[in-house]
């Protein structure tokens, strides 16, 4: 299963909407140009935020023979606006979506699999689990969430995966212990994960501490999960005389483009490193949301991926330390 990044846009009709957990809606789309969705694939959707058109990515939870696509959207309290738009959809409404795109392919043929879903991350993992179950592969599906009512598809997954499903629920005192999970992996295990960045960072750290092969740890990030909630901050480019406000729902890259900077970028999700900017001065901290830099490089705060990473108020990033003096200010130069 190869990566597919060629966007083929098409009309799709919303044919079903159900609430499947607290603040999570299952949305069934009937595309004009149906195409089967491989496990791990996602679609990009044009959403309207404050009258402006933007693009959001949603994992395909499942697709049927007719090419209908199921996505699930959580209304995020700190949403950039996409989830609010998606929750406002009604059946019969039309949307612009891409055909399924693939950046998180499941490899068939590994000795053993661990699939890890944190919260809404189950959307990217559910279809992989279904395929592995059909192939009679050796797999464990680990699903962690805050509370059962916030965990979508729990009953269906329990029915389908039986003993292969392990559930961790914070408010039942059975929180996931990342070190124990990773201790269960060996050199032949491939681990696929999707969830909050803190969870994925912890798994990445445990994985490298165990000296497991890094290519066997698979994850996808749409660059929309950080260590801190997004807040407004200021970006300055002295050489170009730019000073721009980066709103909660905008990226630094977008704000710089709006201010007239000629920006280079590609993936827009913190993977490729093309949007790198050099940090000249920093009032506040940086919430690195990319996977391009190593931990060492992120701590050095000399560079950042402006497509996903953000300024936060305090130097440590901790809310308690937030300076009342105002927004973080990042002074940079660009290529």
């Amino acid at each position: 299963m190869a990566a597919t990044n060629t966007e083929v846009w098409q009309r799709a009709t919303v044919v079903e909407i159900h609430t499947v957990a607290t603040d999570i809606r299952r949305i069934v789309l009937e595309p004009a140009l149906p195409k089967a969705a491989e496990p791990g694939s996602h679609i990009d959707v044009k959403v309207s935020i404050g009258g402006e058109e933007q693009k959001r990515s949603y994992s395909v939870v499942e697709s049927d023979d007719a090419g209908r696509l199921v996505i699930s959207v959580m209304r995020a309290p700190q949403s950039r606006g996409g989830s609010v738009f998606m929750h406002g959809l009604e059946t019969g409404q039309q949307l612009e979506i891409t055909q399924p795109l693939q950046n998180f392919p499941l490899r068939v043929g590994a000795e053993r699999y661990i699939l890890l879903a944190g919260g809404i991350g189950i959307t990217a993992i559910a279809n992989m689990a279904a395929v592995l179950q059909r192939l009679k592969a050796s797999y464990t599906l680990v699903y962690a969430g805050r509370s059962r009512t916030a965990m979508a598809y729990l009953a269906e997954l329990q029915e389908r995966h039986g003993e292969n499903l392990v559930v961790h629920v914070d408010d039942e005192g059975t929180s996931l212990k990342v070190d124990e999970l990773v201790a269960g992996a060996d050199l032949d295990t491939e681990l696929y994960m999707c969830g909050p960045i803190r969870l994925m960072d912890a798994v990445r750290r445990a994985w490298s501490e165990r000296e497991l092969d890094s290519p066997n740890l698979r994850y996808e990030t749409f660059g929309n999960s950080g260590w801190y909630d997004p807040e407004e901050f200021i970006v300055k480019v002295p050489r170009l005389g730019i000073e721009a406000k980066v709103g909660q729902g905008r990226s630094m890259l977008e704000a710089l483009e709006d201010a007239g900077a000629d920006m280079m970028f590609d993936c827009r999700k913190g993977e490729c490193g093309l949007c790198e900017v050099r940090v000249l001065a920093l009032d506040g901290g940086i919430d690195h949301r990319d996977v391009f830099y190593s931990e060492r490089q992120q701590k050095a705060t000399e560079k950042m991926c402006c497509c996903v990473s953000r300024g936060v108020t305090s130097k440590t990033g901790a809310k308690a330390d937030a300076s009342p003096a105002g927004p973080a200010v990042i002074t940079i130069d660009i290529s």
Binding site: M1, A2, A3, N103, P105, S214, P215, R218, Y219, E220, T221, C267, E271, C272, G273, V291, F292, Y293, S294, R296, Q297
Partner: peptide, 11 residues
């Protein structure tokens, strides 16, 4: 670079 782009795979 010190990391690997997680999307980098060939079939």
């Amino acid at each position: 670079q010190e990391t690997i782009n997680p999307s980098a795979t060939v079939p």
